[in-house]
């Protein structure tokens, strides 16, 4: 008998691939070597001799970081050949719950401060640092069959509207945005994470959905994006922290510095994330 549900299903394990290695390696080695090196010689000898990191680095990251962290992991592995980065993506709240339940992760990157705070409150992480911001956008299927023009259209009952459930960060941001704009949305489904909303729109099963700007960008021409007013209370700030019980603390610290540093800034910025 197969059972219907597996709580961990949304958290897909993914090994970062080494695509674009040569350019990335040069870039990363230069950045890490030059910014972290105590002396000019460090630049010439490269990062590998600087800090010979080894082992597996397990990063739990919000689903909205999928594309950027995949790319950063490839750069990081190129700079530290001894390290194998394993990324687990999922809804921030469910990742936080897994960490609190004892999942052996090294680093946690959440999509909002509240979920990180839950991990901090449990005594499992300290000193989280903000590394990116994200805001919402309306996405519609290509061709915009529902003739959606703005937030007010999300209240039209005849449209199929997909939103994140308010218990997950993209959902609380959606509530804040709709409240601030005085729109009472008529959602047909409240999904468990932002990628599920995007999928519903991509498949044409929803006429409109609210997703992060970065998810809209990553979906490319499979969806059309419609800008919404910038509302400060609806902007998500992404914190990152090494975990107290990290099996690989050295690599965890290096990863956090890497994401906060110029490499992380460049990749995140290119994907549409704002600076903290």
């Amino acid at each position: 008998m197969t059972r219907g549900r597996e709580p961990g299903r949304r958290a897909t394990w993914r090994r970062a691939t080494l695509r674009g290695v040569p350019a990335a390696a040069v870039l990363a080695a230069t950045l890490v070597g030059c910014t972290a090196g105590p002396a000019p010689e460090a630049c010439a000898t490269g990062a590998a001799t600087e800090a010979p990191l080894t082992g597996t680095l397990t990063v739990f990251a919000a689903a909205s970081l999928t594309e950027t962290f995949d790319e950063l992991a490839a750069e990081f592995e190129a700079a530290h050949p001894g390290v194998d980065v394993v990324l687990s993506y999922g809804g921030s709240s469910s990742l936080a719950e897994q960490i609190v339940q004892g999942a052996p992760a090294d680093v946690f990157a959440a999509a909002n401060e509240a979920t990180m705070q839950a991990v901090v409150d449990a005594g499992l992480a300290s000193d989280p640092r903000l590394f990116a911001t994200n805001s919402l956008e309306i996405v519609v299927p290509t061709g915009n069959p529902g003739r959606v023009e703005g937030l007010a259209d999300l209240a039209r009952p005849e449209l199929a509207v997909a939103l994140c459930d308010p218990v997950v960060p993209c959902g609380s941001a959606s509530v804040a945005l709709l409240d601030a704009e005085g729109v009472t949305a008529a959602p047909d489904t409240l999904e468990q994470d932002v990628k599920a909303v995007l999928t519903k729109v991509e498949l044409g099963e929803a006429d409109a959905g609210l997703v992060y700007r970065t998810d809209a960008a990553a979906a490319g021409d499979r969806v059309e994006a419609i800008a919404v007013p910038e509302v400060p209370s609806a902007v998500n700030r992404y914190p990152i922290a090494p975990l107290g019980a990290a099996p690989n603390p050295a690599a965890a610290a290096a990863w956090v510095a890497f994401v906060l540093g110029p490499s992380g800034r460049a990749v995140l910025g290119a994907a549409g994330f704002g600076a903290p």
């Binding site: 219907g4 549900r5 709580p7 709240s93 469910s94 719950e97 459930d165």
Partner: peptide, 28 residues
């Protein structure tokens, strides 16, 4: 759980069944 949330969605009172509610409640 799986076929329901994929095909029917998840809206309280309409399509949010016990297993889906349980999965979401785990987060809050």
């Amino acid at each position: 759980f799986g076929a329901t949330i994929t095909f029917a969605g998840s809206l309280p009172g309409v399509t949010r069944t016990l297993p889906i509610a349980s999965y979401l409640a785990l987060q809050s």
